[in-house]
């Protein structure tokens, strides 16, 4: 899990050759991953051209399709296509509701567990059980309960995320530096201030790690739930195109999901950088 002091001791020594090489490597890292991505896309392109199949169109075809599908400008839509506006807000709203629910519940459960060793011992088998149940397996049960509705997606996303957030929060809360807790005690902080000003900020690195991981899970579960249990949304679109043999559109929707994932991850990064400023020590 997230370690303290990510800046590391290297940043305190005078800049030597190793330091400079490290900085260069850090600067090049995003580029390096882009190269890998480009190579993979090239392999896709070449493979699809070498052995044409309706199921796997070349990347260039998908990319062109992608532009048309999602960004064909219509009047008054900010460059986004009608299709985009029909699918993405619906899907994201489900993700937001499910994930927010999971965050609130998960942090609350995690704080309770983290503050009490006894509660942790009592609850950990239960949590381990639910954590090892793949969220997808709960889909039929959710369908039974909620019918084909928004609630299935929201429930599935929340269910698939809440345990990860709870365990990360519990770890973070249980690991708060005793020096800080002792100070808080000596200041006679009331419960609320103790939680909001000391415990949660101190556990924030771990909580944010849980939120980040769970967001990835949530995105997957959003798509899965939409494949089966909705009449709109990105997952629904993917299923529709697949069933109607519109493969380029299927891949283009798939690409959009991937980009959404990257964008959400970037958003968490930004929040994290802001909230955990104090861990970088200058």
């Amino acid at each position: 899990m997230a370690e303290r002091g990510r800046g590391g001791p290297a940043s305190t020594v005078e800049p030597g050759t190793a330091e400079r090489a490290g900085r260069l490597r850090r600067a090049l890292r995003p580029l390096a991953s882009l190269w890998l991505l480009a190579a993979l896309l090239l392999v896709w392109e070449l493979a699809a051209r070498a052995d044409p199949s309706p199921f796997l169109p070349p990347f260039s075809v998908v990319a062109a399709r992608f532009g048309e599908d999602w960004f064909a400008p219509a009047p008054g839509t900010l460059l986004l296509s009608e299709r985009f506006l029909d699918a993405v807000p619906v899907s994201l709203s489900r993700l937001a509701r499910g994930w927010a629910l999971a965050a609130v519940l998960g942090i609350a459960i995690g704080v309770l567990l983290g503050r009490s060793r006894a509660a942790r011992a009592l609850a950990s088998p239960v949590i381990r059980f639910w954590m090892s149940v793949p969220g997808v397996a709960v889909l039929p049960i959710a369908l039974q309960f909620f019918g084909v509705s928004d609630a299935v997606s929201v429930f599935l996303i929340a269910f698939g995320s809440v345990w990860i957030i709870a365990t990360h929060t519990a770890d973070g809360v249980a690991g708060v530096d005793p020096g800080w807790l002792r100070t808080a005690r000596s200041l006679r902080l009331p419960r609320g201030a103790l939680l909001l000003r000391v415990v949660l900020p101190a556990a924030a690195p771990s909580i944010l790690a849980g939120l980040r991981v769970s967001l990835g899970f949530g995105l997957v579960l959003m798509i899965v739930a939409e494949l089966y249990a909705t009449t709109a949304g990105l997952g629904h679109d993917i299923a529709l195109y697949q069933q109607t043999f519109r493969y380029p559109e299927m891949w283009s929707a798939f690409l959009l999901v991937a980009l959404l994932g990257i964008a959400l991850n970037g958003a968490v990064d930004l929040v994290e950088r802001r909230v955990l400023r104090w861990r970088r020590r200058g």
Partner: peptide, 18 residues
């Protein structure tokens, strides 16, 4: 380890009177 690094100096001090 007795000051809270996520709070400004002012907020650290304010906690003493909470």
């Amino acid at each position: 380890r007795s000051l809270f690094p996520w709070l400004t100096v002012r907020r650290n001090l304010a906690l003493a009177a909470v």
